[in-house]
Amino acid sequence: MLINLGLDAVAETVYRGMLAHPGDSLTELGSRLGIPEEDLRGALDKLSELALVRASSDEPSQVHAVNPHLGMEILLARQQAELAAQQQRVEASRAAAARLISEFAHEQSSHSNASVRYLEGVDAIRDYLAALNNQVDEEFLTFAPGGAQTPANMRASRPLNRRLLERGISMRTIYLDSIRRDQPSVEHAEWLTSHGAHVRTAPSLPNRMIICDRREAIIATDSDNTEVGAVAITSPGLISSLCALFESEWHSAQPLGATPAQQPGKLTPQQVTALHLLAQGATDESIAKKLGVSPRTARRIATGLLTHLNARSRFQAGVHAVQEGYLPSSPA
């Protein structure tokens, strides 16, 4: 009962026993309480340290328990002193934190202006998102390219997503179609939907992006390596354009639970996207990153397109794709 005042269970039992039976010797007390002599002496040392016992005035060889009214006042005063010391440490820490923030404020301003702020490295991005998480009021929109999600990203995002969804925030996320073949990523997406989020997939995405309440967006600075850094944008004009881009991609994306039916002789959305990339001269590695698949899978998709189009080369595949209506006859 008195653990919060610094008394453990054994010490409290001994103190209560001494108060109830002041005439007991230590041997009698230990026998009455069923406490071994070593534990009894340890408890007495603790009680002495807390000033709850002292040598008896009548018999110096005996130990006397301090009156409980005085004893509790001693413990409460001790705890109040510890709390005051802790408060002083908190105030000192707060002052030190304020000095640190002030010291590096110019570093942030050198990378930002009124509507754009640069975030360098994945840790800075995660810190910014954690702070932004508490400011979201209504909506959280996400482009999540890169294919299969890494365990680190899923672990880092789940607590933030849970808090948003528990607050009733509308969350919509678009992943790449390729996550449908990665079970951990599918399970993570299904976890999101089970908590109220809406998830769709698309053959490709332009970049990693998050939009909060249609008033702030975070975009990766390098679409090929999204952990390098990001920019946080608040310009209304840019935000409006990014929201329109998201809605366009959302409209054409497939809900997570849906399985797009492929018509015989037709190309899948992923194949169509790969075909456009091939026509632009993209390498297998570039196609792999865009589709969120391995280079080996990208080569297999390209080989399948050549077979489908009855072409012997990528150039010939482009010609046949135009002839069959898969690609426009001239650049848009």
Results as ranks from 00 to 15, higher is better:
residue 124 A to S: 14
residue 107 E to I: 09
residue 225 N to V: 07
residue 229 G to N: 13
residue 192 L to Y: 06
residue 164 L to R: 07
residue 133 N to D: 11
residue 108 Q to V: 01
residue 144 A to D: 07
residue 135 Q to A: 15
residue 143 F to P: 00
residue 201 T to M: 08
residue 182 D to Q: 02
residue 197 A to I: 10
residue 166 E to Y: 04
residue 223 S to Q: 14
residue 218 I to H: 06
residue 197 A to P: 00
residue 199 V to C: 10
residue 118 Y to G: 01
residue 219 I to Y: 00
residue 117 R to E: 08
residue 169 I to G: 14
residue 138 E to W: 12
residue 195 H to R: 10
residue 200 R to Q: 07
residue 130 A to N: 15
residue 176 L to E: 11
residue 141 L to E: 00
residue 141 L to Y: 13
residue 207 N to P: 01
residue 153 N to I: 02
residue 127 D to H: 15
residue 123 D to G: 10
residue 194 S to N: 14
residue 150 T to I: 12
residue 215 R to Q: 15
residue 175 Y to S: 02
residue 128 Y to S: 15
residue 114 A to E: 11
residue 136 V to H: 12
residue 219 I to F: 00
residue 153 N to P: 03
residue 119 L to I: 08
residue 125 I to D: 02
residue 99 R to C: 01
residue 126 R to A: 13
residue 106 H to D: 07
residue 189 A to Q: 03
residue 137 D to P: 00
residue 148 A to F: 04
residue 207 N to G: 02
residue 187 E to N: 13
residue 146 G to W: 08
residue 180 R to M: 15
residue 115 S to V: 10
residue 163 R to M: 12
residue 186 V to F: 01
residue 160 L to D: 08
residue 114 A to S: 10
residue 130 A to M: 14
residue 126 R to H: 11
residue 201 T to Q: 04
residue 180 R to S: 12
residue 103 E to F: 02
residue 110 S to R: 09
residue 111 H to D: 02
residue 199 V to R: 05
residue 205 L to F: 07
residue 220 A to L: 04
residue 211 I to T: 13
residue 105 A to G: 01
residue 121 G to A: 06
residue 160 L to K: 07
residue 110 S to M: 09
residue 148 A to V: 05
residue 159 P to T: 13
residue 154 M to R: 11
residue 160 L to P: 06
residue 196 G to Q: 07
residue 187 E to C: 11
residue 181 R to F: 10
residue 189 A to W: 02
residue 145 P to L: 10
residue 227 E to H: 12
residue 107 E to Y: 05
residue 163 R to P: 02
residue 124 A to V: 08
residue 102 S to L: 02
residue 212 C to D: 02
residue 195 H to W: 03
residue 199 V to L: 07
residue 150 T to E: 14
residue 190 E to V: 05
residue 153 N to K: 12
residue 125 I to T: 12
residue 117 R to D: 03
residue 124 A to L: 05
residue 199 V to G: 02
residue 145 P to N: 12
residue 160 L to T: 10
residue 160 L to Y: 04
residue 105 A to I: 03
residue 103 E to V: 04
residue 229 G to L: 07
residue 185 S to Y: 01
residue 129 L to D: 12
residue 141 L to M: 09
residue 227 E to T: 11
residue 200 R to I: 03
residue 193 T to W: 08
residue 210 I to M: 10
residue 107 E to F: 04
residue 197 A to R: 03
residue 210 I to N: 01
residue 187 E to D: 15
residue 170 S to W: 11
residue 212 C to R: 02
residue 114 A to C: 02
residue 137 D to K: 15
residue 151 P to F: 05
residue 229 G to D: 08
residue 173 T to G: 03
residue 120 E to C: 06
residue 175 Y to T: 00
residue 157 S to I: 01
residue 168 G to V: 12
residue 228 V to P: 05
residue 172 R to A: 08
residue 116 V to M: 11
residue 209 M to G: 03
residue 178 S to G: 11
residue 153 N to M: 11
residue 106 H to Q: 02
residue 213 D to N: 13
residue 165 L to A: 07
residue 216 E to M: 14
residue 189 A to R: 00
residue 151 P to L: 09
residue 165 L to R: 10
residue 101 I to E: 01
residue 192 L to P: 00
residue 167 R to C: 13
